[in-house]
Design a binder for these strands. Structure first.
Length: 838
RNA sequence: GCGAGAGUGGUGAAAUUGGCAUACACGCCAGACUUAGGAUCUGGUACCUUACGGUGUAGGGGUUCAAAUCCCCUCUCUCGCACCA
């Protein structure tokens, strides 16, 4: 008895593909536009712990799809590379003194080896790594194009700062008031920053989503993140001052209900608004809020706080004098940093008004007493002068017209999206190619002097004062101004990790170009990316930043498409099992014993445990290492199992027992080809039908990325083949072709065993004959009142009349009909007959 | 709190337009076979019932000849956002 020798087979064919450059691709002009396809995987950050089972999931899916496309005559661009700037390598350098470049490149070696060991059909000649100067040369160059377009600016405004990472963070990198990377609570810190004006693209980033074939959930997340809202700015005169207080509101129609105003503690007018009597109280309040972390400040459960400034504004619609308060529930970063408060119809304002005894005036007809609770539903206007009786829409229109006529305000649109804080005070990133000259101000490094190389440093430790380790290298920092020749200092901030991934899809097109970031012809040949597969964690960050850069490049005439990624799919997470005590705490997998099927106890205490699904984590000891799986069961088993687990988009738990099932399936296939005599006979009718059903199902499901059901159909075919005495050659050959995208090593080996020269990856995908996929005899069910009472075999396509009379003649049906009257007859050909009786 | 998605056997999961619920696989049970292997092959396996039959896709209601699928309500889980005026 033979045993499927996966290890030898996989080594052999990986070497063959490498040697023959089987998957290298060129921009062949004879291939028509619609047969050129760009399939992109999100490239990994090469961490020290190596590939995780989650990575191969998306990579296997795209690999199967690409192999399928090639066999169908497509020219397929399918590259891989590494997102190799980032904090872990730098933190490791701080701990050990090892240069991040050394760690990074060692990790890349390991990642590349692991990825290759899965037999993916990447064009490795296009591999890139973002930390290489040949690559970041062009990241810097693109930054300069943004700078020259006025999209990069310097700012000293307070930003989110992580004490642990010792760097500033973008708003998108803050989750629940904590650093997304390490969980440290984020504090506000005023340091000099480079910021990209992504808000200038807010409208296009929003409207562009409509044209994209992306999951609705991702589009929605981006829409929410951009957060467009339509409303008006309204200017309130401040009593005794020349200044106006400007607010943004989406409900200008409730202006008659504005009983007080609130400015954020950081608002520039706070100082001027504060009267002598209130000064000490205001100062105390400002001090208090400045000590709060973002987390404390945004905690919804907490009581509202605030202080009266002492000043009054004049409500422009009724000249009422209304007090101006200072409170931290108003954010400086949204709108104008000031609001008009309408406590009757806004929960936040209502809470504040109640706490500080401010008047509450109903201006929308409410079903509740607004003194008791806020009414936030719609209602016709009351107590509102010239808009009384109007509904929301008409009232807003009329109010805005009123304001615009008197120059008291105007229609306005606001976005939640903030500009992108682009600098990091760390070492391991692209140096920002700018200089600070005493006479010329900020000067870009001339393009012909790029790349601006990352210098060597003695210590990787960030200063924590807001300066990167680069600031400590005087010889690098001090330079001459390329404009005036005078002394200048280099910018010491580096770019965030997102920079490199903003445009890598363009570098793959022409990775060795030394003259340009990418070749114009190659760009026009391939772009946009037809299918982009990666994790949902990038729904906002990477995918928004990359779209922004791409749009800028499009506006500069440097790329031919406005959007980079036409179609996007998020693969689900691969989770793992974990074992839970009654108190919901989790027990590491190696401290659990399975005492009976589906029954577990904690080994040490005997406490019964429940099996739950959890994320893989080192502490739970439930992390699966792809190297181990490949070693024990082979890459083909690993690939096929990950596809068999369930639909690509949903998260699903890893179960090695399930993997064994796939291994057995591949072993069954191997033995079929190894032990059964392959004959030059035509298959019998039954087998031929299953074969054509299989071709059809595998073709359609592979096209639709529904790999799990394609695999189960292949299993059906194999099960049937095991019942046959002989193995017709035509079936054997067709089946190998169907298998080849899924288990490419095994398929190559079988193809060779069948007497063919390699490689099966280059042969034509099989086609099915629709006639042969239809069963000639079909089981039709007979129902009485919708319940199945009998079944019978009929010829496919039998007429309604035939079916009906068959049903009425059926012995069981006849007994069910006894003493009843048929009131309705429903016949669905090839499916069922339903008789409704009373 | 708001928004989105999901809930089907012991387990992972299937199921065009509403048309036999549970394909395929794991596990389990039985049998066969064996140079005892990670075996392999064949068959069985939703639940209740001796049977006839009944029940069953998170729970409840509705539409329909017919609902996992469509509509309403409730519950649970996952993800995202969270004082954005």
């Amino acid at each position: 008895m033979s045993k499927y020798p996966f290890s030898a087979i996989e080594k052999k064919w990986q070497a063959y593909w490498e040697e023959n450059q089987s998957f290298a691709v060129t921009e062949d002009p004879s291939v028509p536009k619609e047969k050129r396809i760009y399939v992109l995987d999100m490239f990994p950050y090469p961490s020290g712990s190596g590939l995780h089972v989650g990575h191969p999931e998306g990579y296997t899916a795209t690999d199967i799809y690409c192999r399928y496309l090639r066999m169908n005559g497509y020219n397929v661009l399918h590259p891989m590379g590494f997102d190799s700037f980032g904090l872990p390598a730098e933190n490791y350098a701080i701990k050990t003194g090892t240069h991040p470049k050394i760690t990074t490149e060692r990790n890349i070696e390991n990642f590349r080896r692991q990825i290759k060991s899965l037999g993916f059909s990447y064009d490795w000649s296009r591999e890139i790594s973002t930390h290489e100067s040949e690559y970041y040369h062009w990241t810097q160059w693109i930054f300069l194009q943004l700078y020259k377009k006025g999209l990069a600016y310097e700012s000293y405004t307070p930003i989110n700062w992580c004490e642990n990472c010792k760097t500033g963070l973008a708003n998108e990198e803050v989750k629940d008031g904590k650093c997304e990377r390490c969980g440290t609570p984020v504090v506000r810190k005023a340091i000099r920053q480079w910021i990209l004006r992504i808000t200038e693209y807010a409208e296009r980033l929003l409207s562009g989503l409509d044209s994209l074939d992306w999951p609705e959930s991702v589009k929605l997340m981006q829409r929410n993140w951009i957060g467009r809202s339509e409303g008006a700015t309204v200017r309130f005169r401040i009593e005794g001052m020349d200044e106006n207080l400007e607010v943004f509101t989406t409900r200008a129609d409730t202006l008659f209900g504005a009983t007080y105003m609130v400015v954020s503690p950081e608002h520039p007018l706070v100082e001027a608004l504060t009267t002598e009597e209130q000064r000490s109280a205001v100062e105390r309040y400002l001090k208090e809020t400045s000590h709060k972390s973002d987390l404390e400040r945004t905690d919804l459960a907490k009581e509202k706080t605030g202080v009266f400034s002492g000043s009054y504004a004049i409500n422009p619609v009724n000249d009422e004098r209304i007090p101006i308060w200072i409170a931290d529930y108003v954010l400086i970063s949204y709108g104008t940093g000031a609001i008009m408060a309408v406590p009757a119809h806004d929960t936040r304002d209502w809470e504040f008004a109640k706490k500080f005894n401010l008047p509450i005036i109903e201006v929308l007809k409410s079903d509740v007493d607004v003194q008791e609770e806020a009414w936030v539903e719609d209602g016709l206007h009351v107590n509102s002068g010239f808009i009384d009786g109007l509904d929301k829409h008409d009232a807003i229109e009329k109010m805005i017209a009123f304001l615009e006529e008197r120059n008291l305000g105007e229609r306005a649109i606001n976005y939640k999206l903030r500009d992108w804080i682009f600098s990091r005070q760390r070492y391991w990133g692209e140096p920002i190619p700018l200089l600070h000259c005493e006479t010329c101000g900020t000067v870009p490094v001339p393009e012909d002097r790029l790349p601006l190389l990352l210098p060597e440093v003695k210590s990787y430790e960030p200063s924590g004062t807001g300066e990167s380790p680069l600031a400590k290298i005087d010889s690098w920092v001090n330079t001459t101004c390329p404009v005036c020749g005078g002394p200048a200092r280099r910018e010491t901030n580096t770019m965030p990790q997102w920079a490199g991934s903003c445009w890598y899809h363009l570098r793959y097109l022409d990775p060795h170009n030394t003259e340009r970031f990418t070749g114009k012809e190659a760009e026009e040949y391939w772009m946009p990316v037809d299918l982009y597969v990666g994790g949902a964690e990038h729904a906002v960050l990477h995918l928004l930043y990359a779209r922004f850069w791409h749009m800028v490049l499009f506006d500069l005439g440097l790329v031919s498409t406005e959007e980079p990624y036409q179609r996007l799919i998020n693969q689900g997470m691969i989770t793992s099992y974990a074992y839970q005590r009654k108190d919901k705490s989790l027990v590491p997998t190696d401290e659990v014993t399975e005492i009976a099927p589906e029954t577990w106890i904690e080994t040490a205490t005997g406490e019964p445990l429940e099996r739950v699904v959890a994320k893989m984590s080192k502490s739970l000891k439930n992390v699966i290492n792809p190297d181990d799986i490949i070693h024990e069961y082979g890459a083909d088993s690993m690939r096929m199992y990950e596809m068999f687990m369930g639909p690509l988009e949903v998260s699903k738990p890893w179960a090695t027992a399930g993997l064994v099932g796939i291994y057995r399936f591949l072993d069954r296939i191997w033995r079929l080809y190894d032990e059964v005599e392959i004959v030059d006979e035509e298959p019998n009718e039954e087998l031929l039908r299953t074969l054509h059903k299989t071709i059809k199902k595998v073709t359609e499901d592979t096209r639709d990325l529904a790999f799990n059901t394609a695999i189960s159909q292949m299993m059906v075919l194999v099960n049937e083949l095991y019942k046959e005495d002989v193995f017709p050659r035509s079936v054997a050959e067709t089946f190998v072709k169907l298998l080849s995208p899924y288990v490419p090593h095994l398929a190559e080996e079988l193809w060779e065993k069948l007497g063919h020269a390699p490689s099966v990856s280059k042969v034509q995908w099989p086609v099915w004959d629709e006639k042969l996929t239809v069963d000639t005899n079909i089981e039709v069910v007979f129902q009485i009142n919708g319940k199945v009472r009998s079944k019978t075999m009929v010829r496919q396509g039998a007429s309604k009349e035939t079916l009906l009379s068959l049903a009425k003649d059926d012995a069981k049906i006849r007994s069910w009909l006894e003493g009843k009257t048929i009131v309705k007859e429903i016949v669905v050909p090839d499916k069922l007959v339903n008789l409704v009786v009373t």
